[in-house]
């Protein structure tokens, strides 16, 4: 389907994004896990490179749903790099004790189940961790529960998370903060809940959402327009994806938002983040500036790729 970008625009955006990712692979490269030996395993925390690596994997998993993208040579090379790098960096090292890395590792395992390199022994170890009664019992918001539940379901782990119906009922999606007072955290909560419930477009959530659909459509439209007004491309793109998963097609607001995203893409292919636009990624040292820029812009750039896959995916009737 094509209801946001015209094919030429989309091709141009995708070319730019993949080229930029390829040019910045060193920052997606996670630490060598089996060489981090001086910290207590329970104290090893996720860092920005692990997060970037995991999010690139999540992006590639969704790209795999779209033949037009999946079959590109640069995408295939990127998938290959992602799997080989994961192996080389021993990303599942000391899985049962490096508990703080568990969420990202579940994402990685779900990605490997799609892209290749899947190892059932890793899933078995993950199940062992789940059965220790910790991961699914943390006091966290419905958003974070949904994020975890989504990926543990993908690799078939048994868990104690609630049903989608109950998670929806206990989430804030039925009564969100007034738009002008909604924080970025609130808006990410909204988008991620819908991503999970809708399996990034694989599930029709009309029945789950029920009578709250009109409210969600109105709220996301207002939030999208507000994010466009403040040039917050990262959240704007997530809200556009959310609206696709809620069933929005060919809305003038979303098409205008798509034009905005095309226009804001930089010649090297990235989509600017909040810090870049505020000028706070500047540094005297060019390498330092490159790194600061990367960690601000990689997320809006990857979610724009998510958006392109959202537009190209086939949806349940």
């Amino acid at each position: 389907m094509s209801f946001l970008f015209d094919p030429r625009q989309r091709q141009h955006m995708a070319d730019g994004i993949f080229s930029w990712v390829d040019d910045h692979l060193e920052y997606f490269d996670p630490p060598q896990e089996d060489e981090i030996l001086d910290d207590t395993p329970e104290d090893v925390t996720s860092d920005k490179r692990r997060k970037a690596f995991g999010e690139l994997g999540a992006c590639l998993r969704l790209i795999n749903r779209c033949p037009d993208l999946r079959d590109r040579e640069d995408v295939q090379a990127l998938c290959q790099w992602w799997i080989e790098t994961g192996d080389a960096r021993q990303i599942f090292f000391d899985l049962r004790r490096r508990i703080q890395l568990f969420p990202l590792r579940v994402v990685a395992q779900a990605v490997r189940a799609t892209l290749g390199g899947y190892d059932q022994a890793v899933t078995d170890e993950m199940q062992n961790v789940m059965e220790r009664g910790v991961i699914d019992r943390y006091e966290i918001s419905a958003w974070h529960k949904m994020d975890m539940k989504y990926y543990v379901d993908l690799i078939g782990l048994c868990h104690g998370y609630d049903t989608d119906e109950n998670l929806f009922k206990h989430s804030f999606l039925q009564a969100m903060p007034t738009l002008q007072d909604a924080t970025n955290y609130d808006l990410y909560g909204l988008t991620h809940l819908i991503f999970g419930f809708a399996d990034f477009g694989n599930k029709d959530i009309t029945k789950l959402v029920g009578p709250h659909m009109t409210y969600l459509l109105d709220y996301t439209a207002g939030a999208l327009a507000m994010c466009l007004a403040r040039c917050d491309w990262d959240l704007a793109v997530e809200l556009m994806m959310t609206r696709i998963y809620l069933g929005v097609r060919n809305h003038t607001l979303d098409r205008e938002a798509a034009r905005a995203i095309c226009e804001c893409q930089k010649p090297s292919g990235f989509i600017p983040g909040r810090k870049f636009l505020a000028g706070t990624t500047q540094a005297d040292d060019p390498m330092m500036q490159r790194e600061k820029e990367f960690f601000d812009v990689y997320h809006p750039t990857l979610v724009t790729m998510f958006l392109i896959t959202a537009e190209l995916s086939e949806y349940p009737a």
Binding site: L179, A225, A229
Partner: peptide
Amino acid sequence: QGPIGALLEGSAMQALS
């Protein structure tokens, strides 16, 4: 007028915020 009204609502909310 297309999305002018919808976009303007976003600007109003941004100013309120």
